[in-house]
């Protein structure tokens, strides 16, 4: 059995870490207190939950914060089939025998990165419990397979994202998981700010961005009345990107919003009519 000491691993992986550093400032338009809040939470190394609907800027925000705090950022998109080993790491076979391979979480713990677990509820509950010991004052990660207990690097922090509108009874965070986190609420920014973001990210005129935001509000009114979720900022940007390529706005909205968001023909009709009212 071969294994590296922690120091060896760091030596071997310093280059590896470089790819997780964020070089230039990711554009993020502050919406409220979130930057100050996150800053303070990071100083206390408090685990943070970013709560809000999909596509409202959570991922972009962590990227921005990692850049601001000059920490590497390791992002994991959670999914149903993810196991604890996928996060922590596992032995793999090679020609000479077996070799331990750090998972992304372990890597972040060792090297002092921010570990961002995106859409954490998608992972099964027995997977997510591995973060428990990292999110209380122990700040350790037991690597059971390796018989090792890894103390977290002082710079390490866990951030998770969580979409409250999403989960069913079957898919929710355990109470014991939830209670370890501080939370920052995200929602779609107010119209003027959202339009500013859309105009910049999609490269469209402000006038078009304003219209797109108006359209988004129409779809968000249907949340809970046929739609699980209204059109996200991301969808608006997508529509804007198409419009910037010369696609008429109404068509761009069909492609980027109406068709992806629902399969119900009546709702599509209603949305299409509402979109017409916005232009």
């Amino acid at each position: 059995m071969t294994s590296m000491s922690g120091a060896e691993a760091i030596a071997a992986q310093t280059d590896y870490l470089a790819e997780f550093r964020i070089g230039s400032e990711p554009y993020y338009r502050p919406v409220g207190q979130e930057i100050a809040l996150f800053d303070a939470a990071y100083q206390a190394r408090m685990p943070i939950m970013l709560k809000g609907p999909t596509g409202c800027g959570k991922t972009r925000f962590v990227e921005h914060m990692a850049w601001r705090l000059k920490r590497p950022l390791i992002t994991v998109s959670c999914h149903e089939d993810m196991t604890a080993s996928d996060l922590v790491g596992r032995y793999l076979l090679d020609a000479d025998g077996t070799v331990w391979h750090d998972g992304p979480l372990t890597l972040a713990v060792r090297l002092g990165a921010i570990c961002y677990l995106d859409e954490i509820v998608e992972a099964r509950q027995d997977t997510t419990v591995v973060i428990h010991s990292l999110t209380d004052d122990r700040r350790i990660l037991p690597l059971e397979k390796k018989n090792e207990v890894l103390p977290a690097h002082p710079d390490f922090q866990v951030v998770i994202s969580y979409n409250p509108g999403y989960q069913s009874v079957l898919k929710d965070l355990k109470e014991s998981t939830k209670q370890r986190f501080g939370a920052i609420a995200f929602s779609y920014p107010e119209p003027a700010i959202e339009a500013e973001i859309v105009a910049r990210e999609a490269g469209v005129e402000r006038r078009i961005a304003d219209t797109l935001v108006r359209i988004a509000q129409r779809s968000r009114n249907l949340k809970g009345h046929g739609l699980d979720e209204g059109a996200s900022t991301r969808m608006l940007i997508n529509a804007g990107l198409l419009a910037a390529k010369g696609i008429p706005l109404a068509d761009a909205c069909q492609v980027a919003m109406v068709l992806p968001i629902t399969d119900d023909p009546e709702l599509r009709d209603a949305l299409t009519a509402a979109i017409a009212a916005c232009m």
Binding site: R218, S219, N221, L222, H225, G226, E266, L267, D269, A270, L271, A273, A274
Partner: peptide, 8 residues
């Protein structure tokens, strides 16, 4: 359609 339209 009309109900959804109104709500939208």
């Amino acid at each position: 359609r009309l109900k959804s339209y109104y709500t939208a």
